[in-house]
Design a protein around this nucleic acid. Structure first.
Lengths: 219, 219
DNA sequence: CGGCTATCTAAACGGTGCTCAGATCGCAGT
DNA sequence: ACTGCGATCTGAGCACCGTTTAGATAGCCG
């Protein structure tokens, strides 16, 4: 770690000298934060250590983030953007709405696997203090709206019973969040290996189960 | 706060003097921790503050808990005991296995509402460092075994298709954990009030939806 | 070239987890 | 009854944390 950074805002003759004005501190702090979360978990993330990691004094981050929570908030917003674009692509590429619900579940989990550092921060809203940083809740609303529209489409297809879509929405939403939480926290991983599977395969089977239940003829 | 404690191990003539040997420090630290989590969230929980709250020096807790994580681990184990007994009673009082699955979901959420401080700690396994405190994972396994046996019973009743019960188990497990996470973290509460409902009512409807899907005739 | 502003440094404050030498007390053994 | 021992608690100390502040530095605009 502690990679010396020499990115200047303009061309400089001396490539070894660390510039007084860093030039990309904000982005590098976020990147270093994600690296640190991936390597040692969210508990190890401190602004001081991040500053040291990037090669800057302990007070420097406060010119880019109001406080620790603001750094987390930036990571969460970034993660929700990535998540939404992935979910949106999956939704667009699905044949029908019920298949889309299955694929959304799988995509949510695979996003968590591919961007586990982002996800670990996203799952801990108290770190971002969403009450103080409302852009966090706004970013989190987009994936839910996507899910909601998919549930509505599944109702139009007749798979989901007509009426209030919210119970089904909350069911799939909670399922996705819960599975990913249990995955990243350990228990699902442990149980899957004990069962001779992988969490990746398991969410696929869970999602197929949900799809099969939705596709059963209505009584 | 800062309730002066005068519990002596034996009778004492001076009721106002705080005893040198506290007598019930361990239990009181746990109780104060739960109070503090309920009042200010898990982020506010520190051993120093707990010690001050109970009226004891900052080093005293370390004679009862190896470290901060051990305190959290004790809370988690306690919580899982409470949760299991509640779930077990609900399971025993249900007419059939599918109804039991619905009631288990509702009971899980209502436990989270009634013991939110316990649940907030239980949902953050990194606080208890379950790798170092294996009794935590052992305590967490009992509710899952209960769920598993209920899913198996539902298979015997014909509602759940025969075969591997694990996908259905993971579905309900994740659903319960996810809903409670989203509830305690805020977004479900916000969405429900925006919808004119309560999270309590919503989990009932979600659980009924799951039950209805399971009861649909198999294709 | 001069000044303005954003950026960064370094020091400081209070709080945290955790350790440790020493004080204190209950209790078991004689 | 007394003595010693072990469990418990104190209080000081270390390293780290978030955050603030005064002051140094450098890019940029006039």
């Amino acid at each position: 770690m502690r990679q010396g950074v020499d990115q200047h805002t303009d061309s400089d003759t001396d490539p070894n000298a660390r510039p007084y004005h860093h030039g990309a501190l904000r982005a590098q702090l976020i990147a270093a934060g994600l690296d640190l979360v991936a390597a040692e978990g969210v508990g190890a993330l401190s602004l001081r250590r991040l500053a040291w990691e990037v090669g800057v004094s302990s007070g420097a981050p406060y010119h880019h983030f109001a406080d620790r929570a603001a750094l987390f908030a930036a990571i969460v917003v970034d993660g929700h953007d990535l998540l939404f674009s992935r979910l949106d692509a999956v939704r667009a590429g699905s044949s029908d709405a019920v298949a889309a619900l299955r694929e959304l579940l799988v995509a949510y989990a695979s996003f968590a696997a591919d961007h586990s550092a982002h996800m670990r921060v996203m799952l801990r809203p108290e770190l971002a203090e969403s009450a103080v940083h409302p852009e966090v809740t706004a970013a989190g609303a987009r994936p839910i709206e996507l899910l909601r529209s998919t549930v509505l489409a599944a109702q139009d297809e007749g798979a989901v019973p007509p009426g209030d879509p919210e119970p089904v929405l909350h069911m799939i939403w909670s399922l996705a969040v819960g599975y990913v939480t249990l995955w990243l926290d350990g228990p699902v991983e442990a149980r899957c290996t004990a069962l001779g599977t992988t969490p990746d395969e398991m969410i696929r089977r869970v999602a197929s189960t949900v799809e099969a239940l939705l596709r059963r003829p209505r009584a």
